[in-house]
Structure formats: structure tokens, C-alpha cells
Write a protein that binds this DNA or RNA. Sequence first.
DNA 1: ATTTTGAAAGAGTGGCAGTT
DNA 2: AACTGCCACTCTTTCAAAAT
Length: 529
Amino acid sequence: MIGSSCLSVFEKVILIEVPGNAEGSQENNQQAMNCPPSFGNDSDQAAASSSASISPDFEMLEELQGNLEASTETASHAPSLGSDSDPNAFSPTDCLLCNLNMWTKGRTGVKKSSGMADCPSSVENNSDNDTHSFLYMPACFGPMPSETMNDSNLVENDSNQDNDSTPVSNNSDHEVLPTEMTAEAESSAGDGADTVNGTTGLEEYNNQYSSFLLSISPTASFAYLGDPKRNVKMLNIHLLAAQRKSNPKQAARYLVRNLFPKETLIGSSVSANCRDRPRLDPNKMAAVREFLATVFPNYDLSEFGKEWKACISNVASLIRYLNSEAKRRQNNGGGCKLPGTPASADWNAGGVRVPSEGGFQFPQSLNVPETRETGNSVPNRNGIPEEMGSLSINNTIYSTEVLEYFGNPNRNIHVPSSLIHAAKSKARPEQSARFLIRHLFPEEILVRSNVYGSITQGIYALDPNRINALREFLQDAYPGFNLLENEYHWKLCVAAINSYIRVLRHDLKRFPNKSYQLPGWGPRDPSCN
DNA sequence: ATTTTGAAAGAGTGGCAGTT
DNA sequence: AACTGCCACTCTTTCAAAAT
């Protein structure tokens, strides 16, 4: 949660270029450069999950699981930790193993390779859902052939999974039962489990979901959600409850509610291109989709299916609800905000963002150029480009947060960890670039510039030092993309940046009194007119 | 051919009211 | 209390046309 809250406060521009010796600064900032665990591995979701306290749903677990053993509770971290922590925490025989054939079967309606769909990583397919930055697999996990993988293994795809699945499903070491039988075992273990219609047991289940076979021990209480290779585990009782939902939307909502800690949901987004929040772990979401596809075979739950979109919408609704609830509680009771540190909800509110809301002000040096140390006057719409330079050498530090070098350390550009963190959470470098550009330059600079400038049109070039730092950062954050100067993906980034600037300019024409003339400096806020 | 621009579509969000 | 649907709004992406 550090990530989301800090991010909400500081992701707005605290760009610091430290003058002087890079070596020295590096030394001085040695501590800062040591990324805290939450930030250091791109793993916003993983970090959020693993650092999250026990989900509130564990109360319900206790209620439902009744006399399940204490070990169950330990294992009940699975929803939040399962895919992010020690995969050996559970015995294979304690988990439901879903026949991978089912995944293939469930995808038959998908035109695109679904393996790609959830993780359309390939550079070539130009998908928006590339999830490079969402793979937070500890080394001990080894390769993970999930949909969220972006490597060619996956691209080359389902057939591999099919092959892989065979030995899994045929593994004679595992007792293979349908979920309903799991439920029976479950109910026998405790009184909390809902009863399951015994007549729908193996026979009917095999008829309807013949491939959805499960391997479980009689005392099992956890199951893999979706493809076991995703290593997303969940209490059987939750899976059963989800199965009993009347439609996938409700089931998706229920599963997400139980799969992610509330804190994670509040700070997250289901959207890959949400600007200010990390996306919900795509691996877990893909697992949810896979599960639903097996449980609701009559619905179009392919990656781009109508019903799955409805599920996503429903999950978004849940997150909205949780956010509003959190906001209410904060307002009611007790959220005593520190000056200058708005609640994350304020900033995370997305849509309408008023920079000064919650009392947060951007660094004077960047926010209110009148007071810059350089003493330069405010660059107005007709300002001269030199002022862009003066901005770039501004060294006022306004941050209580850990800072990291942005781009090559020799450039001496520092940004808050949370900004790095948020940028890396974007699915694609273009999105990250678009996100970062508004934090690297104030609007008044942006509206009369573009990345390389266009002299003939009186458009200035943005500070090349920062632009290069941005490119270097993206290159580092998205190793699967070609972000060298003049290369394809960098051009996409440039186009995205220029597109963003264009919109700013367009808005400026429509609303001449717009935000950049206000003291606050932040993303455009067309609503504040 | 490439870049820039304006416009519009699509998706996501918060707020709110109604329902369960 | 939790959930759902609707509306208005913002942001991102895409496309066609114009300019270079």
C-alpha cells in the first residue's frame, strides 16, 4: 500500500535535477537509490499483495470454514500471496488442478490467440495489453507460462499448454474430483461450507465441464484459480460460492473481492491504461477469467468477450464503491490529513483532479515559477524557450520521498520512487511516456513544445536532457521494446507524447483560461474551467 | 513519405440514486 | 451495508486531412 498512497501524493512532479557532480550525488543519494522492496521490482501488484495485511475476508473465512484447522488460516493468505510468494507453500495435492485442456476449450471462440490476448506481449501484435511490467515473479518461481507472459513460449501458445496439461490432468498421483466433490469433502471438514447439491456431482460435472478436472485431497481447502501454472490459489469455498452465482459478472466481483485485499483494490484499477493507479494483477485477473470461462461455458468470457467486459465493468464498479467507501470513512472519521499530503483517494480520484485539493501543492520551484530560485519570471504563453532551460537546472528539492535517478545517472535527474513505480506499472512504454511527460514538464512549457520541436511552426523542442532520460528510463523499464533513438517503439512514445501535448494545446484554444495559468501545475483538468 | 493537426469514438471514472 | 445502473465527465487512442 505504500506504493499507492505515496504514489498518490508524490507522483505529481517532483523532478529534481541535482547540479554538480554526478558521482557525488550518487553517493549522497545512495540510500535513496536503494529502492525499497515495494518499489524496487516493478511489482506494484505483487508488492501490494504481499505487503498487504490479511484480507478482511478472512473474517468471513473463519465464519465459513468453521472448524478448519489453523493451518488453513495460514494458507488462506493464498488469495493475496499465492501467486506472489512461495509456491511451495501448498502441497500440490492440496490444490485443485484444472485441466489445461479446458483453457484451450474455453478459448475456442477467440479469434486471436488467447494466450496472447491476456498477454499480448509481442511487439508485433501491437496490442495494448502488453504486460511486461506486470510480471512480478520471484526468481524462485522459474518460468511461468501464464497468459501474462510475454515471451514467445506463450505466443507459441496454447498447444504447448495443451501438451503441458496432459501430464497434469493425468497425473495419477492426484485424486481427480470435480469441484462439487471438493465441496463435499469440504463440508465434511467443517460446518461452514455451503451444501452442494450432490446430484450434480461427478457425472453432471463431467458432462458439462468435462475438462475441468480437479485434483484434491480429502482435506483440501485451497484450489488453483484458473491455470495452475499461474499459481493463483483460492479457498475452495470461495470458488464454490462463485460457481453458484447466477452470472459471471457477480462471480467475477465475488472472486476479485476475495482474491485481492481491500487495500489493494482501493488503490488499483482494472484498466491497463489508468494513469494513476496500478492495474490489478493481470495474472490473477486472467485466472479469474479462466475460472469463469469454465464455470460459465455459455457466456462469452474470452479475453475480448462481451461477458468478460461486463465482468471487468463490474469489478471496476466494485473498486469505485470501495474507493468511495474509503473516502467516506476518511471524511467521517478520522482521516486526519497532514498538510500537503492529501489522502490517496483525493489524488486517486482520477477524473476531476484539482491539484490543490487536499492541500497539496507542487514544489514551488516547478509549480509557481515566479518564486523559482532562478528568479526568472513566469513563462507565459509567449515565453521564450530559455526558460525551459532554467527549469531544467532548477534544483529545488521538495520531497520527503525516496528519490531515484531517472535515466542515466549522469543526467542528474531524480524523481520520486512513486513516480517511477507508477510509470512502470503502465502496460506499454507509450502509456508510461505519456504519463511521465506531464510530470517532467509544466503545462506552460508543454503547450508550446513537442518532443523534437518544429522551428517552422514556432514549436520548441522539449529539454533533450529530460527527453533522453525518459527514453533511457523506458528502455530500462520495457526491455522487450526497441526504444533506441529513431527506433519504432520510441517513435510511438514520441507520437504519444506529442499527442498528449496536442490535446493540451487544443484544450487551451477552447478554454484560454485553463489550468496552466493557474498556480497549480498538474495534468490538464478541463473541468476546472 | 512523414509529420502534424483536429475531431471523434471508446473506455474508464466519480457521484448519485435506487435496489437488494 | 452492499450492490447495481445511470449519467456526466475525462482521458486515450484512432483516423482522416492538411502540411511539410
